[in-house]
Write a protein that binds this DNA or RNA. Structure first.
Length: 762
DNA sequence: CACCCTCGAGTTCA
DNA sequence: CTCGAGGGTG
């Protein structure tokens, strides 16, 4: 990034380009330059007047550089008021400019441990000796320069372009954590102190709640909130507004991390500087450490990469500085950044990308779900190319158009979520998403199943390929019959193979009657995971795969087996289907794909009735009498049995040997609640518990007579949490629910709560 | 009528 | 694992 500035400088002093372009080319370039200029001005306006950060710095720089290139190639396009004349020049019109006594440099960035190591190697080489590194958190806030004259705070300014910033003294005077007068007496007559103004995450939430209550807009993130709060103007505000403004400013905090404009300070290390700053009464971070090697700096980076949430403010990286001040002078600086420090940037949690298309997928229930197809982009540590948009109302509410640049984040650090469009970057070619009228998989007209339903569904439940595939996959899923060999790929191969023309499974009815002979001929087309397009062989044909057969091995040929042999996947699938036939009744119920009947409702029904026949014979009232089953689920069950091809599933599965009853069940009636050590208790298991699978832990709770809930609430008695536990653990802590580790969980399910050691007191 | 809970779907990772 | 939607319960 340090190169950016020098490139720009070089381009302005380089030989003028020979004027060989035509007037046509010039007018094309003029149009583009105007467009780019407008975009940049739009972004600046958003940034300065509405405190909105619409694009990241890299994208902003790209626009600036494009304009520079154009102006360089076509000198006619240069002008005094071009945005390129104030590069980095995010200097505001609203605040008075302040010149810093010493240039505020920014830091070069590295984005990986490798890049960091390369930087460290260069430092070692240039230093020619061992180096201590000071590691500190890089706060995601605003860089501020405080100027103290004779110990009194006289001015506070943003960084601006590094040389000239905006005067925000009035507002900074209202931030409590910034001393207006320095303590002690050792400070020089004029000293500049650099630091970061930010809003702690908790205060940010408070602020947004207040904004909502007051009907004002909420801030997208703490950084924006800090910037917005610091850049408020008092002028023209009435008493109420002024009070609100002061309240916002009071939430801001500052931490200082450097000194500017002080010749020959009586110090030898950066860490000693922090001690001195603290002795003057300035707030310094407690999260810093000095380490003797780059390896240990790496460990610091990795530690906080995993514990970003443990800090009260948002951090976007780690700053590593050479501790020895003498070395700072030896290493020097480029025009933009010092060589003795580097910023390690963590992967951003919010990024911009292009919305290439909005496509509709159909699930096993026939629901048509629009999802965003995006330019692949790295966010929070993984590459994302798709994100669900739920339904057409959500698409509308988010206001995104196909072709938009959009803001993307990972909700809960896992699930990609489209936040909205960057309206300023539209160029007029974007188009609105229109919900298709027909099912993208089978062409049947989509419709809302109920009055006022937002969801559109494909009514062709029996033969829509997407629905059949989805249902077959659901049978094999963990909540269903848990058939390892029957996942997404097998389900597709069985229901929509390229060969044979008629698939082995037209509906799931034939699943348990599958034979090797039916599996062998199956051929599927290999598709690219990214584009979804078939992969093409060198001879121009689509690449095919035969998941259930393979060529005979040399040994088999010797024994005279010349024809294709069944693959191990084929054997596994048939074996597992055989075993599945006698699995518990509730798994069968889940596998029938009855609306609203998931593992929980299915268990309740199976325990109560003991057989599918008993369920079929029951009236709505009888079904609804089951704990956990209400009139809607009851209706859904009755409705399900009225459809012929549903009955065919039961008939054919039964004919193939599927057991639809619980052996030894006495028949319909309230099953006696399992008596055990956990009777009456609700337990939630989360994270990986040593000695238990996710399923196993649930099973253990149920066999002990307890209720295995899936989310933590007031009614939860215990939460068993292992490593990797996420929000449920946090929720449990919030509600003050006792949290158990794997060993304690084992005691609980085997011997009951009384056997637990007394809770550790905090 | 509040809650609390389950269902269903999409998504990525080890 | 998280969300929205919508069902179930007190």
């Amino acid at each position: 990034m340090a190169d950016t500035t020098s490139d720009a400088e070089e381009s302005s002093t380089a030989e003028p380009v020979a004027e060989t372009y035509s007037s046509d080319e010039l007018s094309v370039a003029r149009t583009e330059a105007q467009e780019v200029t407008e975009r940049i001005l739009g972004l600046r306006e958003a940034y300065y007047e509405r405190d909105e950060v619409l694009v990241d710095d890299a994208e902003y720089d790209t626009l600036i550089r494009r304009l520079e290139t154009l102006e360089h190639s076509f000198p006619e396009l240069q002008s005094q008021d071009s945005p390129t004349q104030s590069v980095g020049g995010r200097v505001a019109a609203l605040f008075d400019p302040v010149e810093h006594a010493e240039r505020m440099l920014s830091l070069d960035n590295v984005f990986s441990i490798d890049e960091f190591s390369a930087w460290a190697t260069k430092v070692y080489r240039d230093a020619g000796r061992t180096v201590d590194f000071l590691c500190e958190l890089k706060i995601d806030g605003l860089a501020i320069n405080l100027r103290y004259e004779n110990g009194l705070l006289t001015s506070a300014a943003t960084r601006g372009d590094g040389r000239v910033g905006e005067d925000v003294t009035e507002n900074v005077l209202l931030i409590d954590s910034i001393p207006k007068q320095l303590l002690g007496s050792g400070h020089p007559p004029i000293v500049e102190v650099r630091g970061e103004v930010f809003i702690p995450v908790a205060a940010f939430r408070e602020l947004n709640a207040e904004q909502t209550a007051a009907g004002e807009k909420v801030f997208a993130n703490p950084r924006n909130a800090a910037a917005g709060s610091l850049r408020q103007k008092a002028e023209g505000k009435n008493a109420d507004k002024l009070a609100a403004m002061n309240r916002r400013l009071s939430k801001l905090r500052m931490l200082v991390h450097g000194i500017g404009a002080w010749q020959n300070p009586p110090l030898s290390t950066q860490s000693a500087t922090y001690g001195l700053l603290a002795s003057w009464g300035l707030p310094t971070s407690t999260h810093f450490t000095v380490v003797p090697s780059a390896e240990e700096a790496t460990a610091f980076i990795e530690y906080f990469g995993e514990h970003r949430d443990s800090v009260e403010h948002e951090i976007d990286g780690i700053v590593i500085k050479v501790d020895d001040l003498a070395l700072h002078d030896e290493l020097g600086a480029t025009s933009r950044a010092p060589r003795w420090a580097i910023a390690f940037k963590y992967p951003p949690e919010q990024v911009n990308t292009r919305l290439v298309d909005i496509v509709v997928s159909v699930g096993r229930t026939g629901r048509a779900t629009p999802y965003a197809v995006m330019e692949p982009v790295r966010v929070a540590g993984s590459v994302v190319r798709q994100a669900t948009l739920h339904n057409q109302d959500v698409v509308k509410a988010k206001g995104v158009l196909i072709g938009d640049t959009i803001v993307l984040r990972k909700a809960g650090d896992v699930i990609p979520e489209v936040l909205g469009p960057v309206v300023e970057l539209r160029d007029g070619t974007e188009r609105e998403f229109v919900m298709p009228v027909v099912c993208p998989e089978c062409g049947t007209e989509l419709r809302a199943m109920k009055e006022g339903d937002i969801d559109m569904r494909c009514p062709n439940a029996r033969s829509c390929p997407a629905q059949v595939r989805g249902r077959v996959e659901h049978v094999g899923s963990r909540g269903g019959l848990d058939i390892e060999a029957l996942g997404e790929v097998s389900a597709a191969a069985l229901t929509q193979p390229e060969v044979p023309e008629t698939p082995p499974l037209v509906t799931e009815a034939g699943l348990f009657a599958l034979t090797l002979d039916e599996l062998l001929p199956i051929e599927v087309i290999v598709r690219d995971a990214e584009s979804g397009l078939p992969k093409i062989e060198s001879d121009g044909t689509e690449r095919r795969r035969t998941p259930f057969r393979r060529n005979p091995s040399a040994a088999e040929k010797k024994e005279g087996l010349t024809g294709p042999q069944p693959s191990s996947a084929a054997h596994t699938l048939l074996d597992e289907l055989e075993k599945a036939k006698t699995k518990p009744l509730w798994r069968m119920l889940v596998s029938l794909n009855i609306r609203h009947v998931g593992p929980v409702a299915a268990r309740a029904l199976a325990d109560y009735f003991g057989s599918l026949d008993a369920i079929r014979a029951a009236t709505q009232q009888e079904l609804a009498a089951v704990d956990g089953v209400g009139p809607i689920i009851a209706d859904s069950l009755i409705e399900w049995f009225t459809i012929d091809w549903h009955e065919d599933i039961v008939t054919e599965w039964a004919a193939a040997g599927v057991q639809f009853s619980t052996p030894g069940h006495p028949g319909p009636g309230a099953a006696a609640a399992t008596e055990g050590p956990l009777t009456g208790l609700t337990v939630v298991a989360t994270g990986s518990l040593d000695g238990y699978t996710r399923e196993g832990a649930q099973e253990a709770i149920i066999t002990a007579g307890g209720k295995a809930a899936s989310s933590v609430s007031k009614k939860t008695d215990f939460v068993a949490a292992g490593p990797g536990a996420g929000s449920k653990l946090a929720k449990a802590e919030e509600l003050g629910i006792r949290i158990l580790d794997a060993a304690q969980f084992r005691i609980l399910v085997e011997h009951g709560p009384a056997a637990l050691p007394p809770p550790a007191t905090q």
